[in-house]
Simulated assay, not measured.
Amino acid sequence: MDLEIRHLRVVCTIADAGSLTRAATALHMTQPGISAQLRRIEAMLGGCLFHRRQEGTVPTPFGELVLGRARAILPSIDELLTDTARATRRMSATALIRVGSVGAPLLGHLLLAVKALLPEAEVTSRCRYSPLDLLEDLAADRLEVAVLGDHPGQELPQPEGVALHTIATEPVFALLPATHPLAARDEVSLPDLLEDDWAVPRPAADRTRAYWSSVSALTGRMPCAPHEAEGRQLIEIVRAGLAVSLCQATFIEVPGVVVRPLAGNPLWYRHMLAWRDDGPLAAHGTDVLHRVVNGYLSACTASPAYARWQEQNVGAARARRYP
């Protein structure tokens, strides 16, 4: 019998666990089974690897030699297996494209772009609240592409091997109950908005709540936020007239709530796309950006409040355009 990679893993697991019983549990083996495996490995290598004692196993000098070499070899083997698995996925006739997204108007357009450019691909998607979690998934090869977002002063880092592309930078708007007195105005000042109770997202790695608070503090006021909610729940709290909040400029009004620009545009949000440099979408980057930017521009048109704001603030918001 020849020495195999799995044998080196067994030896390292025994050394790390400090006993055959604990190593057997870690490897999902029985204690007699791992004992027999160790004897065969020792016979192949020609020496005793561990002293078997009542308190556990201790490497012999010969075992230390083998462990040193095994621990030097196994990380390279693991890297090889990871790289070949990634290459195999890229060469597969039916690629798997895993898409991630924060809450933004870009996900649907990105999914349509992927399906149009890679019609044979299997496409999956999942949403996360934090863009940092999505970046981590991209860097760890758990996603191929993601919709991200950040705020001024809170710019996202760029992990090695991940390309980041800005789609648009837009103002943050006020979200009000339709019956609120401020809803009759064309725009709302942040100090006036701070007179009301707020509904805010939970503190999280994307730091949206911290950004809102830091900008509000410049007015000498901080949001009084008795309600912590996101998504549909936040909208329902506002619709019920219990609080005001903020939203993306592309938010489409639903019955019971209205969207209004903030006077002076004190808050901003940046929409971004990110993908792996070595992933299946890297070769289609320009086409993906073109399609998603066009989708974003259509979302701007579908939001009456944002469309009016753009007419009055030509050039203030910045969306990437491609020929």
Rank of each mutant, 00 (worst) to 15 (best):
T13E: 15
V238N: 03
Q312C: 11
T84K: 02
I14V: 15
P226G: 07
H271V: 03
L74T: 01
L80A: 11
R276V: 04
V259F: 03
V293A: 13
N313Q: 14
A240K: 05
N265L: 01
V114D: 00
E236V: 00
A104L: 00
R308T: 11
Q312F: 06
L8E: 01
R128Y: 09
T208P: 08
A283P: 08
L164Q: 13
T25P: 03
P191S: 13
G264P: 02
L80S: 04
T13Q: 13
P191L: 07
R71E: 10
W309T: 00
E230T: 15
L107V: 08
A104R: 00
M29W: 07
G56Q: 08
P177Y: 11
L74C: 07
Y129F: 13
F62G: 02
L182M: 10
I41M: 08
L262W: 04
E55L: 13
D192F: 11
L182P: 07
L175T: 05
V254Q: 14
L297Q: 13
V244Y: 01
P255G: 01
P181R: 07
G100M: 00
A184F: 03
Q31A: 14
E55P: 06
G33H: 12
A199P: 09
L134S: 01
A299Y: 05
R71Y: 03
R39G: 10
P59M: 09
T219H: 11
L132D: 11
A184L: 13
G264S: 07
L262H: 02
F50P: 07
Q37P: 00
W268D: 00
I41L: 12
R53A: 15
M91L: 14
D141A: 15
H151R: 13
E236M: 03
H165G: 00
E42L: 15
G231I: 08
R89G: 04
G149H: 11
R209I: 07
V162I: 14
P75S: 01
I5Y: 09
R53V: 09
R6P: 04
A225H: 02
G315Y: 12
I34A: 09
D206I: 06
E42N: 14
S245E: 03
L175C: 12
A95L: 05
S76Y: 09
R22E: 15
A116N: 08
T179I: 05
L297C: 11
P181V: 04
R9G: 14
L132C: 04
I14S: 04
L267V: 05
E42F: 14
E144A: 06
P159K: 05
A249T: 02
T301M: 05
T21E: 12
D277A: 15
L80K: 06
A319S: 10
R221A: 14
P61C: 09
A116G: 06
P255M: 02
Q312Y: 09
V66S: 05
L117A: 09
D278E: 12
L106R: 00
R221K: 15
